[in-house]
Design a binder for these strands. Structure first.
Lengths: 207, 207
DNA sequence: CATTCTATTGACACTTGTTCAATAACGCCA
DNA sequence: TGGCGTTATTGAACAAGTGTCAATAGAATG
């Protein structure tokens, strides 16, 4: 088993090779945890020697970071910055782009989440940056505070809302029975104003 | 530094030893990630041989699982099951117990979250169980559906709400400036009904 | 105090991470 | 077409960590 077919080495350009290894890393990470993503495994799957991985990434840690960063960059890039329109509609657009990304790139997204949460400080920072990139848009879109006033509580709530949103997509993708995509999107988009409205002492009034 | 003082071995009962090792594991996990929690490190910190760890836990994986399970059990046990009263008040009680637990046991809780998210299937299951144990109470408390109807969307929302709640405490504990404990609790408790009310087609009406 | 039970050790085999000098693909130029 | 230099790639050797097990030595018991 695992019969080695290639006796000739294939020589790629650094960019190609690097890209190939990162893609493979992201793909593999979807079905196993970070510390199960060994150099041995990756080298074998990629059909290269362990040494080459070190040539490109220097260490296992650094490779892991690069993989997670790759997943994060993908997310930010492919989640198109929202078009213009009224705030609530833009919010829906953002959320839709996000959900669609997760649906089509489920594995990659899982890599990001899993890798980040369990890993070291650097990994978590990468993840935090990605999340900020997404949620900051919301504040930027809503500069007039039509939906969200910029207070400590609101900031906290947006953060919480982001976590909720993430959990919602992931859970829904795994088991969508009984909930349509549109319902999911509606819930996500409507949640944010609803949550902000909950703050006691807020002009809009709460519970 | 780290001068080895003990030349005599100390012999404990299996329960004592096991407990000591798990406690130490949880404590160490607070300041490093799971895969930085090596057998070597733990053995040295505990002042025992590596062999003893294998005697008690069989493998590194199994030890990690035991540590995470320990943290989960702690959480469930110390978060007292809610007293009786009206649903909304019971919800607040639940949430309060949860927040207070996280505040006083921050490190242990972090171990649970970090360990679970990054780890293998088993670790994630342990975490899921803990979360279910907490949220299932809410459905149980609210058997009449006074707050939450038992539908697929609601189930999903409660799940999302749990994720949000977790994010809120963790973020708040790290930086509580501008938000009092009572505000936090109010937001958390009020969020759930607010979120459920957001569902389109729900009798209570939505956005 | 000797004996027995078993918690604990330490040394050894094996897996996985890391380094580095040697190798061989590919583009270039004659 | 065929040699040549560049450098992507390898494989062997080393380090560090994981897992195994027969031997050791606390503590209780008589």
């Amino acid at each position: 088993m695992g019969s080695v077919t290639a006796t000739t080495r294939t020589r790629l350009t650094p960019e190609e090779r690097r890209s190939q290894l990162l893609d493979l890393g992201v793909r593999l990470l979807a079905t196993r945890s970070l510390d199960e993503l060994s150099i041995d495994l990756l080298a074998e799957e990629a059909g290269i020697s362990r040494g080459l991985l070190y040539h490109y990434f220097g260490s296992k840690q650094a490779f892991h970071e690069a993989v997670v960063r790759r997943a994060a960059d993908d997310l930010i890039a492919q989640t198109a910055p929202p078009a213009d329109g009224e705030p609530l509609e833009r919010l829906l657009t953002s959320v839709t782009a996000y959900v669609d990304y997760v649906v089509t790139n489920y594995e990659g997204y899982l890599s990001l989440v899993k890798g980040a949460a369990g890993g070291n400080e650097t990994l978590r920072e990468i993840y935090e940056e990605a999340r900020s990139a997404l949620t900051d848009r919301i504040f930027r879109e809503d500069a007039q505070g039509e939906i969200i006033p910029d207070t400590p509580v609101s900031r906290l709530i947006v953060r919480g809302w982001a976590a909720m949103t993430e959990e919602l997509v992931l859970a829904w993708v795994v088991d969508p029975t009984g909930v349509t995509r549109e319902e999911l999107l509606a819930v996500m988009a409507a949640s944010l104003p609803a949550l902000v409205a909950v703050v006691p002492g807020d002009p809009r009034g709460g519970a």
